[in-house]
Nucleic acid binder design. Structure first.
Lengths: 338, 338
DNA sequence: CTGAAAGCGCTTACAG
DNA sequence: CTGAAAGCGCTTACAG
């Protein structure tokens, strides 16, 4: 049994293919109620499924949104290695689906041609998460697609942005530790990159220190990668540098710090306080439960989806959207030990 | 500047469109080396990108593989909520990409028409993860697509399977606890479903008990959902039922159990031992680090991708592939308290 | 080794 | 309110 096409429906309903097309695409004003009914009936009984490739080809609109995530820092080329991405993507997908669009997911590495893949599928628009490298960014902008950058500070006239107020969030986080009496506060983070979020969070951290008259100590900035393993390593340096608190710019790192401190029998938060960032599910699973900065990842993802569709559908969303983040207090932050 | 098509290349290289098509599709035997060179040159200078929708339409092969994951049990319609899926999917995607195929990801809920979406995109084959419900399964098989079921025991003549030896793995896990002197061993699990993996793991658990002459106590089977929150709740029942060890059929549940036990100041593994399943990244992040059953999720995903492509390309992979799982000993299992 | 023609399943002006 | 025709960018027999 061959696939049932629009032509089959046309024959069954005794109309032309183009009337069927009109009805399918909800241009019902262009057909009499009676015809619409007959066509819908035929669609139901024959089990018609539109061929989306054909539609994309003919209409020059694929209803496909490309979503680009960077491959993990150790270049193992795995999507979704970071639960943060998994959650944003879930949010994006849910928003797209609700509005009748589809997601084409792709990783993006150093030398990768994954952007080409998206071009080949004729995606209507692009959401790129956590982009910083100039080289890759260049490749993105070459196709002049409606583009939304999530968590990126790369500037470009043709690009829209969604991000949290990273500097402010980091400042508040640091202040939260200061309020608990801490003065030797380490910043444990991934690589500080041009146009990335960490740059901004570092700035917020410094602002908080300045405001509290705590001199900035570069030795307390521990930059590695956004991984659990780096957190474990960082724990050792935390101790060596006599930090009493660590502000980690990702929960994944914070989880590693917790684990590294446990290995050395350091009490948390008795000896060292740890504050995370993201409010990933894992932050509730570690021990002690991690105090962290919530950035409502899922909502962020949904918003990203909706913004990019607004953009695509010509509804002129704001060029930049900034979300608020807030601190979630759990058990990993306490007063400084006297 | 309009998109450059195969026709543009044909003109530039002074050949027909079909010769270009042949060269693009690596049927180079059908063209002289000289022609091939001219065509490739034109492709490079003009920056040609094949239109995959057009190719799919004309060739009746989309190189798109549908990947279906069930929506989470609380029906919140979010893909990737479970890190297990995120990891399998990463593996699948990586295998598909390596062989020149693309992934179309879709969730699958109670009433959902997501399978329709995949049909509409003309996916060449299907990988479905963790399917048990008969209703949904029926909808899958109606399209007679090459299908690989991951972690499912639903039988059907037209479907291929990839799974671990769940009964055996559960048996070994239980024996591992028995070897530590435990006799009141609870099984903490998601819903036991027809054709799902948990059914098998329950069987393995019972086999181990039988072999050790430990009577099966239905009160020690705690079935909820595959979530952290359920693990927290289960912790309370563990205590009430005087279990000395818990075998959890998912790390997510085990993490919740750990957390719930901490809340009640139970020492792990001093008072109660906890064993997980999956070896998710989170199993290293919790405290104490979780002993668990490793099922090499990433490799499983890659294998799934390769199996489905073998199937699609007519290489007749085995109808059923069973992977071995092995126990990873960390800190959450210890000898029973006398 | 190369090409002309038909066709994949849709949509889009255009006409009536 | 409805239709005939052309076209989207490819591939597929078929012919030479």
């Amino acid at each position: 049994m061959a696939r049932v096409t629009i032509k089959d429906i046309a024959i069954a309903a005794n109309v032309s293919a183009m009337t069927v097309s009109n009805v399918i695409n909800a241009r019902t004003s262009k057909a009499s109620p009676d015809t619409v009914e007959r066509i819908n009936e035929a669609i139901r009984t024959l089990g018609y499924q539109p061929n989306l490739s054909a539609r994309a080809l003919a209409s020059k609109a694929s209803r496909l949104i490309g979503v680009v995530v960077p491959f993990t820092e150790d270049q193992n080329q795995l999507l979704l290695d970071n639960p943060f991405y998994a959650e944003v993507i879930s949010g994006i997908e849910s928003a797209l689906r609700a509005r009748g669009y589809f997601m084409m997911l792709s990783g993006l590495g150093e030398t990768s041609n994954e952007v080409d893949v998206l071009a080949q599928w004729n995606v209507d628009a692009l959401i790129a998460i956590g982009i910083y490298r100039e080289g890759l960014f260049e490749r993105l902008r070459k196709r002049h697609l409606p583009t939304l950058l999530v968590d990126s500070y790369l500037t470009d006239d043709h690009v829209h942005h969604l991000r949290i107020a990273d500097d402010q969030a980091a400042r508040r986080a640091t202040e939260h530790l200061i309020a608990h009496g801490h003065r030797r506060i380490a910043l444990v983070t991934g690589a500080v990159r041009d146009g990335g979020v960490i740059e901004q969070r570092l700035a917020g951290y410094r602002l908080a220190l300045d405001a509290a008259d705590i001199p900035f100590d570069p030795d307390l900035v521990l930059a590695g990668s956004v991984t659990f393993d780096w957190g474990i390593d960082a724990a050792e340096q935390l101790i060596a540098r006599r930090a009493t608190a660590a502000f980690c710019t990702a929960d994944l790192i914070a989880a590693g710090v917790l684990s590294g401190l446990h290995q050395r029998d350091i009490d948390i938060p008795g000896d060292i306080s740890v504050l995370g960032f993201d409010n990933l599910p894992v932050s509730q699973m570690v021990y002690p439960a991690l105090s962290t900065v919530d950035q409502a990842i899922l909502d962020k993802g949904k918003l990203a989806g909706n913004l990019v569709l607004d953009l695509l559908e010509g509804r002129k969303p704001p060029r930049e959207t900034r979300l608020e983040a807030r601190i979630i207090e759990r058990q990993s932050v306490g007063p400084v030990r006297k």
